[in-house]
Design a binder for these strands. Structure first.
Lengths: 191, 191
DNA sequence: GTCTATACATCGATAGAC
DNA sequence: GTCTATCGATGTATAGAC
């Protein structure tokens, strides 16, 4: 049965996340991970071809968690409320696990480049965001860029300067309104 | 003469920046740096007590460059225009050298913590920004937080996704207006 | 699949001669 | 101040027995 093997791989990835939470992403070493799962370091190569493959599995796992979470969100019919609900869920996902956010969105491991397959869910998330933005009246590509950058700036500041708090993310709803209103106003002005 | 020594230290720091530009901050090793300046690795310890001391010297040097640049900016009398000129200079400083930005504002070296003396100019910069924001009518601490986070999000997106381009930073002026107007409007509303 | 043993590389830091 | 020599730690990866 290949099921056994898959379960084992999943448990190793889970242990890797646990290790990353305690020691930071850079603290994830094959020696440490092997110790955490009760194995010797070379034995890990039965499950991952390289350390990069391990990171890629973690990256894919994190993206899977993200999509799973966002797909579970009940979106209101009203476009603006839907966008807010969606972004709130994203922000909650991010701040509840800064380490995961770092690996998924900040590339803290210079040598690691995610494979296209692992990267695809992240693009899916961005596409969904753009879709909701458009529905809410933000269609200009520049406006979308600004919105995405603003969200990133907000969560970065939150995680970097006030982890566990709400100093920055408490402004999320208000800023969303600000950006949407501005985009709509400028769109009507351009006509 | 201690001048000679100071000049040598400065030239080593300059070589370290050069190395960082080519190999990334993480690629700055004492072996590589020594090779770049025509020395052997242990000889660097005549100028820096540790690798941390080297990073601290680079950090201080980068902050000195930042203050030097910003102090040279001629600020218009009108507060809003002054804020824009100041932030434009900051953004220009940042995008012209992403590596320097990384070391100064992103802490890409987990083990490195800047000394208080090296960190002070960065606080000076933030204080000046807050001062200009206040003069332009942004006084609420939450509004200041949001503004700073927005700027950071903008330059992060620019450097990360379109280095050398202007896709994000071209919106700088407009976004500054947006934030100022909103802050002023909400301030008058609260009364 | 898991182990022991080990190769191989990188890097920071120290000792001591000159 | 600069050198040679070397230590010691860390970390990825491979070889080969079981």
């Amino acid at each position: 049965m290949a099921e056994r093997r898959g379960a084992k791989v999943a448990s190793i990835v889970a242990a890797a996340w646990d290790l990353a939470h305690r020691e930071g992403i850079g603290g994830v070493t094959l020696h440490g991970l092997a110790r955490a799962v009760g194995m010797r370091q070379p034995s890990l190569y039965a499950y991952f071809d390289s350390k990069n493959a391990l990171f890629d599995a973690m990256f894919a796992d994190g993206n899977r968690q993200l999509l799973e979470r966002l797909e579970a969100v009940r979106l209101p019919r009203e476009p603006r409320a839907a966008l807010k609900a969606f972004m709130r869920a994203f922000v909650r996902f991010v701040v509840e696990d800064p380490t995961r956010y770092l690996l998924l969105f900040q590339r803290p491991v210079p040598s690691f480049v995610p494979s296209p397959a692992s990267y695809e869910p992240a693009q899916q998330f961005l596409a969904r965001t753009v879709e909701l933005l458009r529905a809410a009246g933000v269609e200009d590509l520049g406006d979308i860029d600004c919105f995405v950058a603003m969200i990133a700036g907000l969560v970065d500041a939150q995680i970097g300067n006030d982890p566990g708090g709400r100093r920055w993310i408490r402004h999320l709803d208000r800023l969303i309104d600000l950006y949407i209103d501005d985009a709509i106003q400028r769109r009507s002005h351009d006509r």
